[in-house]
């Protein structure tokens, strides 16, 4: 059983699916919070993810060249998080805030424009070519391999995948704490629930919006760095490639529901990877070229069947 099915399935489809799902989940958290609290689909979110990864790489390269340090990506990501939160603040102040009271579609349009502005800026600064993020071949974790190998269920998971899965668990737990136990987190849920009521309750909505950009920005940089760690390189189109699966994850989980976004991300990530498993016969069920179509199909089905998502989020 394990030889014929499990080994290949778990190591080459299931685990990569979960890893991809973690990355989608982190990105989708920001999208769903923005959608819930600021009430618009932020098309620039993927680009912030991508830029965060580029900045992280630059910090690693600079500290390497200047001080000879070999910074771990997660350490280098910390200053990058601050920078990207600043980017979100600036973008919000100058390009989104003028449309707070205008029809939503204006700010969606502005965010669509920002998507291209941010991407062009990255292409000007870093050039359009791929950059190697981490060198070398990722070897499977030897401890897990030996341990599971002795039980005749050899599992091959590279350390980078443990890092991504572990990191996602920690971030989601922190987010859970923030939303359940802190004043600002509860206020974020309140605004997401009803912005009008929040206003007449005296909640300072602008403070909540800033908190949203902070949380969304931190999760976006984490997602970008994890993605770069996984594929071991940087591309200026990687943010845009993530955008559709992340929207799909947010809609699947229910708009304004961070846990829904996490679940949605995992489902989309798994579905994309498992779609190319040879379920019937020897050929992949779906040609890997169509992988990114899976997210879209799930999203469309969800919009037909249940637009409010699994966790019954908002519909507009």
């Amino acid at each position: 059983m394990w030889e014929s099915f499990g080994f290949e399935f778990v190591n080459f489809y299931f685990v990569p699916g979960i890893v991809l799902g973690c990355i989608y989940a982190l990105g989708a958290i920001g999208i769903t919070l923005t959608f819930g609290i600021l009430r618009f689909a932020n098309f620039a979110h993927g680009e912030v993810m991508m830029t965060g990864a580029y900045v992280t790489w630059t910090i690693m390269a600079l500290t390497g060249a200047l001080f000879g340090w070999a910074l771990h990506p997660l350490i280098a990501a910390i200053p990058s998080v601050f920078l990207m939160i600043l980017v979100f603040f600036v973008v919000d102040r100058f390009f989104y805030k003028p449309f707070r009271k205008a029809p939503t579609i204006k700010v969606v349009m502005a965010s669509f424009g920002m998507m291209l502005v941010i991407r062009s800026l990255v292409q000007i600064l870093w050039g359009p070519n791929q950059i190697t993020f981490v060198k070398g071949i990722a070897k499977p974790n030897s401890f897990i391999r030996e341990l599971t190998g002795s039980m005749d269920m050899m599992i091959l998971v590279p350390n980078k995948h443990f890092l991504i899965m572990g990191g996602t668990v920690v971030i989601v737990m922190l987010l859970g704490y923030l939303l359940t136990y802190t004043r600002i987190g509860k206020a974020m849920r309140a605004v997401s629930d009803s912005p009008d009521l929040a206003l007449v309750t005296g909640i300072d909505v602008e403070v909540v919006i800033r908190a949203t950009w902070i949380v969304g920005g931190a999760c976006a940089v984490a997602a970008g760095v994890f993605l770069a760690t996984d594929i071991q390189m940087l591309e200026t189109t990687m943010g845009f490639r993530m955008l559709l699966p992340m929207f799909a994850a947010a809609i699947l989980g229910g708009i304004g529901k961070p846990y829904g976004a996490v679940l949605g991300g995992l489902v989309i990530g798994l579905a994309e990877e498992l779609s190319s498993y040879p379920w019937i016969g020897d050929a992949p069920l779906l040609s890997p070229g169509y992988k990114s179509g899976v997210a879209f199909s799930i999203m469309i089905v969800m919009l037909i069947v249940r637009p409010s998502g699994i966790f019954k989020g908002r519909t507009f």
Binding site: A187, S192, S194
Partner: peptide, 24 residues
């Protein structure tokens, strides 16, 4: 102010609603 409709945060617990009332 207590609005006529939609006057509680439906996804928040009763206590959290009161805590939000105390925001200021």
């Amino acid at each position: 102010y207590v609005p006529q409709t939609h006057n509680v945060f439906v996804n928040l617990s009763v206590q959290e609603n009161l805590e939000m009332g105390a925001w200021t």
